[in-house]
Nucleic acid binder design. Structure first.
Lengths: 354, 354
DNA sequence: GAGGCTTTTGCATGCGCATGCAACAGTAAA
DNA sequence: TTTACTGTTGCATGCGCATGCAAAAGCCTC
């Protein structure tokens, strides 16, 4: 009876058509919003489809329409809760418009990943990169075929790549101001990888602002956005003779490592001996174990903007690449001491508005 | 010149064929390992493909072959680092065989998610569920069309669903033994959701084993596998008059919440006043901020087994559902006091071998 | 150089769906 | 009743690739 072992193939529109006594195209139209079908026949068709538990074959639909409703997401550092959050937000928000994510985990330096070049084989409607950057080849390919690329949290010199990010410049400056206001005098910065432009922007802004306040030196080390890397970087910092009393970390995740090392390995007090600030405001930053002061970078908003860009690029393919910034704020917790003024409580959170 | 604005369509096999001066089928064969093509023509074709930067259209290939090389992954609780790790492992291991993940984030009770029913529209080769369970309808659909389903870390009563899990029973019993050996006398269990069978298995095994040792009562609360939920559950526990001195949490992530509440909110000492043990051994458990004793459940191995099952089911579709267990061990850290004996140090980690 | 083989190639078709076009039915207006 | 539409339907085709089959081209052997 059955075609082959277990695998009788899934029902197709033709099967439904036969049952409903109509043509295959009628069935197709019944499932195409806005197509021309009489209400009666549509009902008849839907009933037949139901009885066969028919599901449209999206691959075939993609072939016919040239639109797959699949968005490729390339990501590194999934162990960093911030990026896990971004993935979750993107997935949920895309789902609202019936789209789904094809996941590519890559190295932090995505430009070096040949696997990623093959992403276009899947006929994805767009490409989102988070915590990675696109190679030149990939970018050209995408432009040629009209596939929008958006990078979240990584800048790009390449034209044709849109970007979404938090307030890097402003965050770094505010943190510098904040440290100064709280009376700190010796500063350090734990950056991501040396190649990460975002990290460098923060570093420049941080150092620049401190210079204005009369502090010429910032101790800079790199944690490569990993926990172990940041821990090692922190050790380097703390072993120096005139060690910092205020550390700005380029991500919360690295700040957690710094906290671990400062408190447990070196037995120093936070914030008495050393103040630590991160960026992102991941949920863990609010947990008692870390209780980290941080400049927020809302994942949901980043995801939303990225999707908006994609949609606008798909709607009008000629469109130029866009750059968007999402606002955040400095959220005060126990890893820093409070400056004498400027502390407000909003929505049950302490923030700093100098 | 150009077809439409920016979007000149991607080159196809026919385009390559024209350039190489062969037929489309020759091109197809050149890209099909094991197909019959002369070495010369293959080279000629590859060169032509290169010059056009041709990429095969995987949608079309899927249509023709009935195999998409896409695996659907449904997951909830992505904020739990354990599951982030599972995603990462699955992604990386699947990539080695040229397959990719189509991501579905769902609620913990996936069976209630109608969106997930549509997963088969994508013609995925298999379906992996982690931290969720499949509905009956979905299961039937999959069986009908021969798509294997594997659940990671969730049991299933439905036939036809394969499962992969850690040592739930054994973990719970070992932890019970361990608590007793360390001299604890009042026990509590913080479970996941009431519907989670895995959580219940652990609870039963934990309570059962304690009973054997003469302890009849275990305080049970539920944290729904969320941080906030576990924190609330812990508060409930600690407010009781004769509160526990040893808590077993059904996941590390919930254990972190418990630690936060115990230490900061109630100012109790860990492990002096209360010992806490989790399950998973996520990287964070080893971080100084938590330093959690836990029964490990290696994500890489879980992913590997899941993929093995999928492969075997794809290879021989008639195959029955499989159930596999991945071994772990009790890793001792600072959230528990050490029993007088049985403590070994292996690979720089303390484990308990009674 | 002819017959028998193997290897290589092209032709034709199908996968499941969308869609332009023509045929058709139904309705209202003349 | 005829005409002019509007709204529905089916037909035919194409999306890009894989593959069975037959034709063609080599290759060997005698």
């Amino acid at each position: 009876m059955s075609r082959k072992k277990t695998g009788r193939r899934a029902p197709t529109e033709s099967d439904v058509a036969k049952v409903a006594g109509v043509s295959q195209s009628a069935v197709s139209r019944a499932f195409t919003p806005g197509a021309s079908v009489a209400e009666d026949t549509r009902k008849k068709i839907l009933k037949a489809a139901q009885s066969l538990s028919y599901q449209p074959n999206l691959m075939a639909r993609s072939m016919a329409t040239g639109r797959s409703n699949i968005i490729a997401l390339a990501i590194s550092s999934l162990e960093n809760p911030f990026y896990a959050q971004v993935v979750k937000e993107l997935s949920e928000q895309l789902r609202e418009t019936g789209r789904h994510i094809l996941l590519f985990t890559t190295s932090p330096d995505g430009a070096a990943d040949p696997e990623l070049e093959r992403v276009l084989s899947y006929q994805v409607d767009a490409l989102i990169l988070t915590a990675t950057t696109a190679s030149l080849e990939l970018t050209l390919q995408c432009q040629k075929t009209g596939v929008p690329i958006v990078q979240i949290n990584r800048e790009s010199k390449l034209p044709g790549i849109s970007t979404v990010r938090g307030e890097n410049q402003r965050a770094a400056e505010r943190i510098a101001d904040f440290f100064v206001a709280a009376g700190h005098t010796r500063f350090a910065f734990i950056g991501g990888s040396k190649g990460s432009n975002i990290s460098e922007i923060r570093q420049q802004a941080f150092a620049g602002r401190l210079k204005l306040a009369g502090f010429d030196h910032v101790d800079v080390v790199h944690g490569n956005y990993t926990f172990e890397g940041a821990a090692a970087a922190t050790r380097t910092l703390l072993e120096k003779p005139d060690r910092a009393d205020a550390i700005f970390c380029a991500s919360d995740y690295m700040a957690f490592a710094a906290l671990d090392v400062v408190k447990r390995e070196f037995g120093l007090g936070v914030p008495e001996d050393i103040a630590i600030v991160g960026v992102d405001d991941v949920p863990e930053a609010g947990h008692a174990a870390y209780d980290l002061t941080t400049y927020s970078q809302p994942a949901a908003a980043l995801a939303r903007e990225a999707i908006k860009i994609i949609d606008s690029q798909i709607a009008s393919p000629g469109r130029r690449a866009q750059r968007r910034e999402v606002r955040g704020q400095l959220i005060l917790r126990g890893s820093t001491r409070l400056p004498p003024e400027g502390v407000l409580t909003i929505d049950n959170k302490k923030v700093w508005q100098s």
